[in-house]
């Protein structure tokens, strides 16, 4: 799958309170959460985002609480992929469970600038920076995560497991 979009660059240790502050956790609706994506980082942040845009972050993106509302808010904002030097553990599981793709690229994240246009090849694990002409290779998505993505997320995966048990 190919995704083409503009980079929105954020810093290190972007926490889940920055991604979706607790006051917005009174809903489970993806679109409503998306309307407040990154509201704890900068009020009105989401207004700059267009469908298929990409967040590029420094290390430990998604640290803090276990709220699944965080990846949902990102998906709800129309962002299908987050690229970062590294991700926080709970956020990592949540993202794949929800169908948000995370690409870990280490220090290569520094080669992707705010406003650059990227073409991300999810199958090849490759990011083409259309603005600079550079290419960044991502760590491969682990097999167990790929299985989840192939199943369409954790919900259909468990559904299948439950059906097998019956």
């Amino acid at each position: 799958m190919l995704v083409t979009g503009k980079v929105h660059k954020v810093g290190a240790h972007i926490d889940t309170d920055a991604i979706i502050p607790a006051r917005f956790l009174v809903t489970t609706d993806t679109q409503e959460l998306g309307a407040n994506c990154m509201e704890g980082l900068e009020p009105g942040w989401v207004k700059r985002v267009q469908k298929n845009d990409i967040i590029v972050a420094d290390e430990n993106f998604g640290c803090g609480s276990s709220r699944e509302h965080a990846p949902l808010a990102i998906i709800g904002a129309g962002i299908p992929v987050v690229v970062a030097k590294s991700f926080a553990r709970i956020f990592y599981r949540n993202a794949y469970n929800m169908g948000l793709v995370l690409l870990e690229v280490g220090d290569d994240a520094d080669r992707l600038n705010d406003g650059d246009t990227l073409e991300v090849d999810l199958d090849a694990g490759q990011i083409k920076n259309l603005t600079t002409g550079e290419t960044v290779i991502c760590a491969p998505v682990p097999q167990s995560m790929q299985d989840l993505l192939d199943a369409g997320g954790l919900v259909p995966y468990v559904k299948k497991r439950l059906a097998e048990k019956r």
Binding site: E68, R93, N94, N97, L154, Y157
Partner: peptide, 18 residues
């Protein structure tokens, strides 16, 4: 350990997780 809601839903249904 902490996990997200859907992981927890899976654990509530199956009694196991990875």
């Amino acid at each position: 350990t902490g996990m997200g809601s859907t992981d927890i839903a899976g654990a509530m249904a199956l009694g196991e997780t990875w």
